[in-house]
Design a protein around this nucleic acid. Sequence first.
DNA 1: CGGATCATTGAAGTCCCTCAAGTCCTGTGG
DNA 2: CCACAGGACTTGAGGGACTTCAATGATCCG
Lengths: 242, 242
Amino acid sequence: MATRCDSCPLRQAEIFEKMNGEDIQFTQRFKVGELSVDPGTPLLMEGSNSPQLFTALHGMGLRYKLLPNGRRQVVSLIFPGDFIGLQAGIMGEMGHSVEATTKMTLCVFDRSEIWSFFKERPERAFSLTWLAAVEEHFLGDTLATLGQRTAMQSIAWALSRVFVRGQALDMVHNGAMKFPYKQQDIADALGLSLVHTNKTLAALKAKQLAHWSDGTLRIPDLEALAEVGLLDNLEPATRPII
Amino acid sequence: MATRCDSCPLRQAEIFEKMNGEDIQFTQRFKVGELSVDPGTPLLMEGSNSPQLFTALHGMGLRYKLLPNGRRQVVSLIFPGDFIGLQAGIMGEMGHSVEATTKMTLCVFDRSEIWSFFKERPERAFSLTWLAAVEEHFLGDTLATLGQRTAMQSIAWALSRVFVRGQALDMVHNGAMKFPYKQQDIADALGLSLVHTNKTLAALKAKQLAHWSDGTLRIPDLEALAEVGLLDNLEPATRPII
DNA sequence: CGGATCATTGAAGTCCCTCAAGTCCTGTGG
DNA sequence: CCACAGGACTTGAGGGACTTCAATGATCCG
């Protein structure tokens, strides 16, 4: 039973830009179905031009790139509300692969219809561009992390950001949120080795700054952690939803 | 004397998406002037919301972020044809600063008019989104470089990409192109120290793979360099121009 | 009970960083 | 015309943050 856009649970969270009735109606028309996948399922492949685009409704995933030498770079984590496949929709080719980390349910859109956003519904086209700009902004921050932060700072930065995002999505209860990734995922996201990531996480735990185990992330003092991570802005950016 | 869009010299280069007469005319209407700046001039500041957006006509620049600890991450180099200020135009806030490296001339657009792209000229709005997607794609590649490539691979990758871009813009003559940056800029772009960048460049020169001095970059065998840099695609992506 | 996956810990090695000089070049002013 | 200062580039040396290698636990599952 597919979720209807006008009762989309995502829009509850306040980081998402308000949509008016017509926007919702238009988006509904664009939605061709709903997809449910198991953990580990590939959703899009780098270099491909999938006919389908998605919005994550439930569950989490990750975007990554594989290098010729076999190493993997995790580009970003996917949270509910993220739009997946914009590059394919616009440029006709994905720059990274996407896979589900947990069980996910996704709204499915038809790539060939993307032009109608621009043609018929400029507000929605603007939202699409907005999302691209948000992503670019975020990647810039991540770049600065890999380039200029130490391992300790990087991990503190990443966990802080995750937590801020989690708060904005009402995923934090009693100071804890589900964080269903592997240490290897975070290592690959930050350009660190698994071993060093593990030891740094242990150090953060010893300092009482972040506790992450069994897929649950607990941060007693977000400001303290953010300071270690040289993260100055704890406000989640508001963004549109497709 | 301002350049007219219908005789814009940039569109000569074939990496740029073809524009029809109406697109050109519309863009011309949007253009409010031309700006000429000296090397070192700041164009946009991180966190600001400039009323002006630019397209680089001549000259080169760079985008960068400053961290609380004073370190600098160069996010990308700016080449002719690049659009500057999209984030401010869409989100109302830049995620990085921009400054001119050489003397530059820029087309100036009015930020408040950006909505008219979407409202009146969906083709141009699509181009804008396309640019954002291209940038996101590129940042993903850069991320993989900082995270997964060695210093030698990183520099080989960066120089190869620069050269490919230079070729596409007809900036390469007799196997050489102007590359007016400092070693510190490249070090900050790749998350390396100046010293190590210098030594790695020397190593590449010794291997006859890349010669960069006095602001001129010479690459005798692009394929060989690209292979060292684990760069597989030597085709420049076609992109729109604003 | 094996086998698989993930997390943890120890030890050794290395790539890259920081520190510190020194060269080359350009511009400036006496 | 030369002394000097500043900026970019070079080069050497030593140290450290992080990697790789290797082994062990812990948990889950057919």
